[in-house]
Write a protein that binds this DNA or RNA. Structure first.
Length: 400
RNA sequence: GCACAGGUGGCCGAGCGGUUAAUGGCAGCAGACUGUAAAUCUGCCACUCAUUCGAGUUACGGAGGUUCGAAUCCUCCCCUGUGCA
């Protein structure tokens, strides 16, 4: 049995409050997932992520395959164990790298040849290989191998890209179903591998993960592509639904298209996806975007923005975006975000953060990342709360 | 005192007759980041005027000189470092 989704409430807007049961964590949705490409949410330690309330984080197939290698991670009990993260994990398939490493790869029907960005060595990724790697990593959720279609892409190009992604989706699913029993923690969870660490606080798999029953397996999500073309998106969604994935993602967004286009694609695709399965919009977004999409019925989102921007001096706050390195903050003793109660805002001033950034001190990026994640996770928490207890309609209050 | 080596824009440091308001780097100022080749990238960074194109002024220790033209060559002076007395 793969994941299960308990929908607790659905708002008129389509937004829904649910619980997503995964092997390592029951995830309260809508959820924002911090990105931890190389087995780390950059600059933020696992215990901090826990205290921030992160329920699920990402890892990346391509990066972890290159370093330290998926077989090494398998031997160490899987990604959860390796990075000491007992909550849920999702691995991206490498499909985004088909887009982002465009100078370093060559795409064929069979798969993608990458030239490693690390040492130039050559690596061939097929949907089957991506599945093998993801199964070895053992994330709760795996993603089909896709091609993230760039923007702008003309109709022909988007159609061709979609053809590839659909064929790869079928191959991903077939291979995944045939091999998903090889997940490293499936066996380990039963054997209680944590004895060596008990009491140390490290306890990677935790005592109460859903994996213990052995019945809850890894899940695989299909990814809707099709550029900004409604009919292609529709075709993509319908065919994936037919294939019967455990969840569905909308990909190929936030790759440079205007924001209205992003919104349009999401609102067109959402109704085409099964209501009883999780819906994931990949790679979004700014704070207001993730809130908006969550209210529309998107259950899951991930984005590098809060962490990357943080390392680049940008703080997301209730009073707007702050480039904390700006001179105006040099002696500003206010907390980064006056309305925020995160561990950073409770303790440090804007002036201090600016000073750290100014000096290139790594603590600056760390603190900024923590705040930005707290801000993002806080948004989702608020949305969840509001979806759970919908406010009564404005004036015509009495229920009919 | 003598002998070398030097003095360049906030700092370091190229340039060694014209294409040089002067390469780079740092610092500074600002901007961008959306399934992470990203603690990265981009722009500005002598002064004045102009919204733009641009125009003008002052600049390579100081003062003279050579030359159509000097940060670059010559003379003197000042200063710094090193070595020898």
């Amino acid at each position: 049995m793969a994941l299960s989704l308990d929908i607790l409430h659905t708002a008129e807007s389509g937004g829904r409050r649910a619980q997503l049961h995964l092997p390592h964590q029951t995830v309260e949705t809508p959820v924002f997932m911090p990105v931890g490409t190389a087995g780390t949410v950059k600059a933020v330690a696992q215990d901090v992520l826990e205290s921030l309330g992160a329920q699920i984080i990402l890892g990346n197939t391509y990066h972890l395959y290159l370093r330290p290698g998926h077989e090494a991670i398998r031997r160490m009990g899987g990604l959860h164990n390796f990075i000491s993260w007992s909550r849920a994990l999702l691995t991206d398939s490498g499909g985004f790298q088909v887009y982002s490493l465009t100078q370093l790869r060559k795409v064929t029907d069979e798969g993608v040849r990458f030239r490693s960005h690390l040492d130039g060595s050559s690596h061939f990724f097929t949907p089957e290989h991506s599945m093998d790697v993801q199964i070895a990593l053992g994330a709760d959720i795996c993603m089909a191998f896709d091609e993230c279609t760039e923007y702008p892409a003309d109709r022909e190009r988007a159609r061709e890209s979609l053809r590839l992604t659909m064929a790869w989706a079928a191959r991903s699913l077939r291979h995944f179903r045939a091999h998903q029993h090889q997940v490293p923690w499936h066996k380990q969870a039963v054997l209680s591998p944590t004895s060596d660490w008990s009491g140390s606080g490290r306890n990677p798999l935790g005592a109460s993960t859903n994996a213990e029953g052995g019945g809850c397996m890894q899940s695989l999500f299909g990814i809707v592509q099709g550029g900004v073309y409604p009919d292609l998106r529709r075709e993509s969604a319908e065919r994936l639904v037919e294939m019967d994935f455990d969840g569905y993602a909308i990909g190929g967004l936030s790759v440079g298209e205007p924001r209205e286009a992003t919104l349009e694609v999401i609102s067109e695709v959402l109704p085409l996806l099964p209501k009883d399965k999780p819906r994931y919009v990949m790679g979004v977004g700014y704070p207001d975007e993730i809130e908006q999409y969550a209210r529309m019925g998107v259950d899951m989102m991930d984005c590098v923005l809060p962490t990357r921007a943080a390392r680049h001096n940008l703080l997301f706050t209730s009073v707007g975006r702050l480039n904390i390195k700006n001179k105006q903050f040099a002696e500003d003793e206010n907390p980064p975000d006056p309305a925020c109660e995160c561990m950073v805002c409770r303790r440090y001033s804007r002036a201090y953060l600016r000073h750290l950034m100014q000096c290139g001190e790594s603590l600056g990026g760390i603190l900024a990342s923590i705040h930005n994640l707290a801000y993002y996770l806080g948004i989702m928490q608020r949305v969840r709360h509001q979806l759970h207890a919908p406010s009564p309609r404005p004036t015509d209050a009495p229920a009919r």
